[in-house]
Amino acid sequence: MGVIAGAWQWLTTAANWAGEKGVTHRLAEHVRLSAVCLALACLIALPVALWLGHLGKGGALAVNLANIGRAVPTYAVLVLLTLSPLGRHGDWPTVLALVLFAVPPLLTNAYLGMREADRDVVEAARGMGMSGPQVLFRVEIPLAYPLIMTGLRSATVQVVATATLAALAGGGGLGRIITAGFGNYDTAQVVAGALLVAVLALAVEGALVLAERLLDPMRGGWRATRSAPARAEPIPAD
């Protein structure tokens, strides 16, 4: 039996989906861990990036400092945190490692989106008497929305894929299926676990692309403009 056929047989066996070691439970653990890490990364990176982008000061330093994290292997950070006193507190080493991994794309893309917003539009909004917060939320963020969502998609897919490493630190998630397969010398289970992670990452990517299109504030404004009835020109008096 080929590896792919063996993996398919493993995935279509109902017993492998039930119980605490089954796919359903591991998938829920994986999604929960990824969501927590991504939420924390967003709470850290987005307010900083949006505010610095609005001010136009200090952003380059913040982006460069964040990008240093990209040069540090996530697995190495995870191992060091697991061996530290923090390793006694459940999934916190994994959460911290993944948050550090997710912050750079969120921070970089959000800041660049803010700085690349059309300055003529921003200045026109200020000239209309808009306050700083109004310019930020009603002009700059909508203009920066595509790059913000690009960073969010990139960070989300990276976190979902990298959360597999949680199993190496004793955590849950789909990575446990892969490590169990290695422990049992079961190549079919290893491939099945890898396929589950890949499918989850692709599904999350597709969902975020759809959400980006549906929630795009500029697209909504464009629709409203197109759907508004044309105003009749007044007829000049004789």
Rank of each mutant, 00 (worst) to 15 (best):
V103S: 01
T179W: 04
C42D: 06
H25W: 10
A71C: 12
H25I: 02
V31D: 06
A180L: 08
L200D: 03
V3N: 08
V79P: 03
R153A: 02
G56F: 09
T94Y: 00
A5C: 05
V23I: 15
A14E: 10
T74D: 03
K57G: 06
K21L: 12
W51Q: 04
A192W: 02
T164Q: 07
F101R: 02
T162Q: 06
L136H: 04
I178R: 02
L27H: 08
L11E: 01
Q134K: 12
A207M: 10
V209K: 12
K21C: 04
G171F: 01
P234Q: 07
G172Q: 03
R115W: 04
T82L: 15
G221H: 11
P47A: 11
H89I: 07
P47S: 06
A198V: 10
S34W: 02
Q189K: 14
A232S: 13
L168W: 02
M149P: 00
P146L: 10
Y111I: 01
T225R: 11
G22M: 12
R226M: 13
W8Y: 07
V209I: 10
L33M: 13
P229V: 05
E205G: 06
V135T: 12
P217K: 10
A15H: 08
A39Q: 11
L100I: 12
L43S: 05
I4P: 03
L214A: 09
A14D: 11
M128W: 06
L50G: 09
T225M: 10
A180M: 11
M128A: 13
L107H: 01
A110L: 05
T24I: 05
M128P: 04
L38D: 04
A76P: 07
S84T: 03
A224T: 14
L11V: 07
L52M: 09
R226A: 15
A15T: 13
G129Q: 11
T187C: 05
L86T: 04
E140L: 08
W222M: 13
Y111P: 01
G175T: 08
F101D: 00
G56T: 13
L195V: 11
P236D: 08
A28N: 13
Q189S: 09
A207K: 03
L83T: 11
L214G: 11
A230H: 05
P236F: 12
